[in-house]
Design a protein around this nucleic acid. Structure first.
Length: 889
RNA sequence: GGGCGCAUAGCUCAGUUGGUUAGAGCGUCACAUUGACAUUGUGAAGGUCGGAGGUUCGAAUCCUCCUGCGCCCACCA
């Protein structure tokens, strides 16, 4: 191949879109179309991005990691399936469209009505979906688009209804009047995880309900106190022991009448405030729990509109909570009931999406009973216990392992899950009412007069069923049988509790199996200073910008290499640029090889063995093939263990430091050198091609585009479905050790020359401290010619005198400097250098000797360690001797 | 308040069951470079592995305490 055909630098933008289109057209993302017999399945479901936005770094890192896993599995001959999809993200999408509607037309969703509003949301979701799908393709994600799903499409809706009905029939979904988190702005219930706490200043009032009431209490929310039904104190609190169990009836309080029972509850902190807690069962989740324990009455004083109810009494009825707070505080002051007013900091619960202040209020809602006992496989279990058991038994593993602890905490503390939302966008609760009748079904009931429940389901309800609804559940599909449980769930650790917990919960119950065998949690991508990327900080690095500038391959590497599961990573544009450089390096390695090898390259007879395995002749040949084998084995093992970063790092080191910097340089010499035997460069060419092809395969999961481009340019086939390389049996540790010596000699000579400690002369005397000299003679010649070339010394091809006793490489370099005629060494400088080295070696040898002399060490340390230390010590001793000789002369 | 984690070279981080003189990338400095690549090459400097104890023949690695950060949950009535 002529060099001119290959551009000097790799410009990713010229190739990536075309390559992706070709992959897509090939149909090979769909495992049904993969060649060969593939008994083993591998499956991942893509954590569905919300249809609210565009691709961000979180998506990019997720796509990069999962694509590596899937491509690796595919090349290893597995039936590899990666299912794409998007999430309707009910509350997020709905809020976004409501905001747009209000901004552009000044209307609310109620102004346009349910039907019209839903049309608008669907239009928005569709546009957003198309954007994000195209962006995923830019990353090179090998997703099977033929199986794409949406959490709110017809199939998934059917599945949701089936699940709802089954859980309702089993008594695990129920409707109840309970205290929930109400968002008065969004006009919907929200879950605990959708609450964000803001620190605000508040006034803490300490007061009594009445002058003659024996206990003072503290609150930051006096307006809710009209709904109090009890005062709780700690059971051991002697101050209040006398009052426990007493009820104070009909206390006139802020325009209403209240009755307060004194109860003992160990949840009360006796050291906080007065040590007594005014219990407002309807407007605090904690108080509701206390009320339930003591059978207290619940009195709702705040309505869904955020205003005080009629029950709140004449003083505050109709007022907003804020107005009422002032009213009640003023009333308390007038009555002289306040003992203290102090400023305090308070965590205010606000709704993540709408920003509204969350009010706990009692409402009729749908719940999932996660702690309700039932029989399953002959055992009494709960949804929580099933989920916990799945991880405890190892059916599902979580990496990093420490996350399992956090998971258990969730499993142990989960409350009943409020699944209904007063939103329009989402899965409508499949329940219909007529007079006093309730119908729960997959389809609407027959007959007239039925009204469907207006609420929709929490978005995590359908998301919790994602691994199996994407595979066709509730139908008994072939996909379901083949690909479930899925192999890996890969997602950010920040979503473990939102999503992973819900999936475990619903899947263990509905499928009686785990949703995935492994949870792999990646960290957050932060900016180079370690800050979260955010609009307000203006520090967002857009993955699409990086792809446009440096290519998808470089972007992927920068996200994967150097980051470990569960840990956050920092990203800077320089890092991406660094990997762009590597992409270009790989390109130029290929460019050199493809343009310099003889098209008729064949391994000469003595380099062939069995079925086309290349057997190297020279030390360098054997070294690179040995290294290649080691790298194939190690990278394969690391990828199997999902150590993506370590695998990538090792590959980069081999590619750049071993193959490009050393073997390629030597290959140039070998190809043109007189010392090359028989078939000349053709054998070297064969090795170059072997390494190149293997490297392309190894790199492909990480850098699919550039490797595919290079591969197809000389192979004409699709790299994506090539078989993963296997170890060829060329591993030879002694060869690697010998080559390391050569490398040291070469380096030493270069150093000597660059420090001008010798003048270039016409001959070199160097030798190698290796075991079998004969075997190495030919290799030495090539090595030394390489040394000569690199150090600009001429070399006549003569072999070195085998009689020179050289102990080790370091000595070899010294001999060169001293024995070569024309030495211009600065004696002082050289002496200082040698002395420093002597001291260092001296200390090392002494300490190692001491260790080896220790009887306990000798008896307890493994033989391998002792032998290794001894060998290294001997090497150092020899070096030391040579230096001492030098210094004395 | 409960839980989890981090601290290793100037910066970003590896370090897989405790074991041979602690590694990489970037950055810095020096030198080199006209055919694969300046998106380059070679080398150097740079670390008492946060501190103090302990276990052990042996600790960056295990235990205890301390210091400084970070995160999650609960929640301040």
């Amino acid at each position: 191949m002529a060099k001119s055909e290959i551009p000097k630098a790799y410009d990713a933008t010229n190739y990536e879109d075309g390559i992706y289109a070709a992959w897509e057209a090939s149909g090979l993302f769909n495992p049904d179309n993969l060649p060969g017999d593939r008994p083993e399945a591998f499956s991942i479901v893509l954590p569905p991005p919300n249809v609210t936005g565009t691709l961000h770094m979180g998506h990019a890192v997720m796509l990069a990691i999962e694509d590596i896993m899937v491509r690796f599995a595919r090349m290893r001959g597995k039936k590899a399936l990666w299912i794409p999809g998007t999430d309707h993200a009910a509350i997020a999408t709905s809020t976004k469209v409501e905001n747009i509607l209000f901004k552009t037309e000044g209307k609310t969703r109620h102004d346009v009505g349910r039907e019209d509003f839903l049309r608008r949301v669907e239009k928005f979701a569709q546009d957003s979906h198309d954007t994000i799908v195209n962006q995923a393709k830019k990353m090179g994600a090998s997703l099977d688009w033929s199986r794409e799903a949406y959490t709110l499409d017809a199939k998934r809706n059917h599945a949701v209804n089936v699940a709802f009905k089954r859980m309702y029939d089993d008594g695990l979904i129920y409707r109840g009047h309970r205290v929930i988190n109400w968002d008065p702005v969004g006009q919907t219930t929200i879950s605990d995880i959708e609450i964000v706490y803001k620190e605000v200043e508040a006034t803490l009032y300490t007061f009594r309900y009445a002058k003659d009431f024996p206990i003072a209490i503290s609150t930051t929310r006096p307006e809710t106190k009209v709904g109090d039904t009890a005062v709780a104190v700690h059971p051991d609190d002697e101050r209040y022991a006398a009052f426990i169990g007493k009820t104070f009836e009909n206390i006139p309080f802020a325009g209403t009448t209240i009755s307060i029972k004194v109860v003992a509850d160990k949840e009360v902190d006796p050291t906080f405030g007065t040590g007594a807690l005014g219990v407002t069962p309807a407007h605090s989740l904690i108080d509701a729990d206390i009320a339930a324990r003591h059978g207290l009455a619940m009195k709702q004083v705040i309505g869904a509109d955020g205003r005080m109810t009629v029950d709140a009494g004449t003083l505050v009825a109709g007022q907003t909570t804020k107005e009422a707070r002032g009213s009640v505080a003023a009333w308390l002051r007038e009555q002289g009931l306040i003992e203290r007013e102090e400023k305090t900091m308070q965590n205010l619960a606000t709704a993540e999406r709408s920003g509204g202040t969350v009010e706990p209020i009692p409402m009729l809602q749908w719940f999932m009973a996660v702690r309700k006992e039932f029989e399953r496989n002959g055992k009494t279990v709960t949804m929580c216990s099933m989920m916990r058991d799945a991880v405890e038994s190892g059916k599902t593993k979580i990496v990093p392992e420490r996350s399992e602890k956090t998971f258990f905490q969730w499993a142990d503390n989960l409350r009943d899950w409020n699944i209904s939302r007063q939103l329009w966008y989402g899965h409508r609760v499949p329940v219909w009412y007529r007079n006093d009748e309730t119908f729960v079904g997959i389809e609407a009931p027959e007959g007239d007069g039925w009204t469907q429940d207006p609420d929709t389901l929490d978005t995590w309800f359908s998301a919790g069923m994602w691994t199996f609804t994407t595979l066709g559940w509730p139908e008994k599909t072939a996909d379901l049988a083949t690909y479930h449980p899925t192999s890996i769930l890969e997602t950010g650790y920040d979503i473990l509790f939102f999503w992973v917990v819900r999936m475990m919960l619903m899947t263990t119950y509905l499928m009686d199996e785990v949703p995935f065998k492994l949870v792999y949690l990646h960290g957050l991508v932060r900016d180079e200073q370690g800050r979260k990327m955010s609009k307000s900080l203006d520090n967002i690095i857009n993955p699409l910008d990086m792809i446009a500038k440096y290519g998808a391959d470089a972007t992927r590497l920068s996200l994967v290499i150097g980051s470990t599961p569960g840990n956050d990573s920092k990203l800077s544009e320089e890092k991406v640029a660094g990997y762009r450089n590597f992409t270009n390096k790989l390109w130029n390695i290929s460019r050199f090889i493809l343009s310099s090898v003889d098209d008729n390259h064949v391994p000469p007879p003595d380099r062939q063995e069995g079925t086309g395995v290349v057997v190297a002749s020279t030390l360098a040949d054997r070294w690179i093939l040995s290294r290649l084998d080691a790298v194939v084995a190690s990278v394969t093992r690391k990828l199997e263990a999902n150590e993506l970063s370590a695998a990538g790092e090792e590959l980069r080191d081999f590619t750049w430091n071993d193959f490009a910097d050393w073997y390629l340089e030597i290959a140039k010499v070998q190809k043109g050198s007189e010392v090359e035997r028989d078939e000349g460069s053709k054998g070297t060419d064969a090795i170059l091609m072997t390494v190149l092809e293997t490297l392309m395969k190894l790199w492909h999961p990480f850098m699919p585009f550039v490797t595919e481009q290079i591969w197809s340019s000389f192979k004409g086939t699709t790299l994506m479905v090539e078989a993963w390389p296997t170890v060829a049996g060329n591993c030879d540790e002694s060869v690697e050790r010998d080559f390391d010596l050569v490398r040291d000699v070469t380096t030493a000579i270069r150093t000597i020359r660059s420090e001008r400690r010798v003048e270039p002369k016409a001959e070199i005397t160097a030798s190698l401290g290796v075991a079998d000299r004969r075997e190495l003679l030919v290799d030495q010649a090539s090595v030394i010619s390489q040394l000569a070339r690199l150090s600009s010394l001429s070399f006549d091809g003569a072999l070195p005198d085998a009689g020179i006793p050289i102990v080790n490489v370091q000595v070899a370099s010294i001999l060169v400097s001293v024995e070569t005629p024309g030495t211009t060494v600065d004696p002082e400088k050289e002496k200082a250098r040698l002395e420093a080295e002597r001291d260092q070696l001296d200390a090392y040898v002494a300490s190692t000797d001491a260790k080896l002399a220790n009887a306990e060490f000798a008896s307890k340390a493994p033989e391998k360690v002792v032998a290794g230390m001894r060998a290294k010590r001997d090497e150092a001793k020899a070096k030391l001797d040579a230096i001492l000789t030098q210094l004395s002369s």
